[in-house]
Design a protein around this nucleic acid. Structure first.
Length: 106
DNA sequence: TTCCTGACGCTTG
DNA sequence: CCAAGCGCCAGGA
């Protein structure tokens, strides 16, 4: 879906070592479909390897979709590989690594 | 074709 | 402050 494509575009623009939330993307796209559809888009994006879905978490910074990866630890592993610290499946200092598309992209 | 569920988030009780 | 419900769109049965 085209809506999903926009989501992929935003997710792809997430800088290395940063993370954003489903709601932030939904908000940037004008709440199109809401945060849920962003997560759903990630599911479709799962087939695409160009979309770093591991950099997308919920507004709490929790790795809710980690279970959807090849391995539940894969998401955390990728994030830690980028310098992001994970504490109990949650990003530490999420406010610091948080990447708001509506702010960064304008 | 219709109903239900889903990687979420906000508002209300 | 904590818990529950509703709303968003799309896809599968």
């Amino acid at each position: 879906m085209q809506n999903f494509d926009e989501v992929y575009q935003v997710v792809r623009l997430i800088p290395h070592g940063r993370a954003t939330s489903y709601g932030a993307i939904a908000n940037y796209l004008g709440s199109k479909g809401g945060a849920r559809l962003v997560g759903w888009a990630m599911n479709a994006a799962h087939t695409k390897d160009d979309v770093p879905a591991h950099r997308v978490v919920n507004r709490n910074g929790v790795l809710t979709g980690k279970n959807f990866f090849e391995t539940p630890d894969k998401m955390q592993q990728l994030l830690e590989s980028e310098g992001i610290t994970i504490e109990k499946d949650q990003i530490r200092d999420f406010d610091k690594v948080f990447w708001d598309p509506s702010v960064e992209l304008g």
